[in-house]
């Protein structure tokens, strides 16, 4: 369970407030106009930004002051999700052990993950030798082996075409079920949210609304969402 307790985030003179709880196993879409603070909120949860006040709690435990690497979190960014100088195996392996000293069981585990995302033959390649979609799959394989209970997606598939992006989102949905974790994803597109997010929050006008069931929200959108969608 992720709790954002009276969070107040200030960045470049702009304030964002968030105060809600997300139940475990939920997939939350953060939807709203660009510049509204969706990525900023993820960066606070991940530990790259400090909130001015308030706390971030995971399972009731305060993680506000933990460094990013010690949080129960895996995250995919808009770009640079893979180290271009390392092979596919190494990139995924870093999700298991940051010193890359993998034992036989861990190597087998890594291989299963690679197979799971459909890249079995690509283990020795470097990201530059892969297509954009394949690179996304490598990053997702790493999320899979990391087995962190909280997954943050900051529009990692925005550079892909619509068909590929939907493939990736479906894969994310499946992987999240396997991990049994909680997910937060940033999105511009209502259809992305409708595809894999069971709950949605609207980020606009300096606040993050509490998560509401996605289908119900879009059927009967509140004013902030109507303003954003232009309906």
């Amino acid at each position: 369970m992720l709790t954002l307790e009276k969070l107040e985030i200030v960045l470049d003179g702009f304030t964002l407030n968030a105060d809600f709880t997300l139940e475990q196993g939920r997939n939350l879409a953060l939807i709203g106009p660009s510049g509204a603070g969706k990525s900023t909120l993820l960066n606070v949860i991940a530990g790259f930004l400090r909130p001015r006040s308030g706390r971030v709690l995971w399972q009731g435990e305060d993680i506000t002051d933990l460094p990013p690497g010690q949080r129960p979190i895996s995250m995919l960014f808009q770009d640079n999700n893979l180290f271009p100088h390392l092979t596919v195996t190494q990139n995924i392996g870093l999700g298991i052990r940051p010193d890359l000293r993998l034992n036989a069981a861990e190597r087998a585990y890594l291989h299963d993950a690679l197979e799971r995302v459909g890249l079995a033959g690509m283990a020795g390649r470097k990201p530059g030798q892969l297509s954009g979609g394949q690179q996304s799959r490598v990053a997702l394989a790493r999320v899979l082996v990391q087995r962190k209970p909280l997954v943050l997606l900051d529009e990692p598939f925005s550079a892909l075409g619509p068909a590929l992006k939907h493939d990736m989102l479906r894969l994310v949905g499946d992987l999240m079920q396997e991990i049994g974790g909680t997910m937060l994803m940033v999105s511009h597109e209502p259809e992305d949210a409708q595809m894999i997010a069971d709950v949605t929050s609207v980020v606009a006008q300096g606040t993050v609304t509490a998560p509401k069931p996605t289908a119900a929200l879009f059927e009967n959108p509140p004013k902030v969402l109507r303003d954003y969608l232009g309906t």
Binding site: G47, F48, P67, G69, F77, F83
Partner: peptide, 15 residues
């Protein structure tokens, strides 16, 4: 370019 990724993966010190 890669600092945040390294942070999230817990890459510190020698690693």
């Amino acid at each position: 370019n890669f600092g945040r990724l390294a942070d999230v993966l817990g890459l510190t010190g020698w690693a």
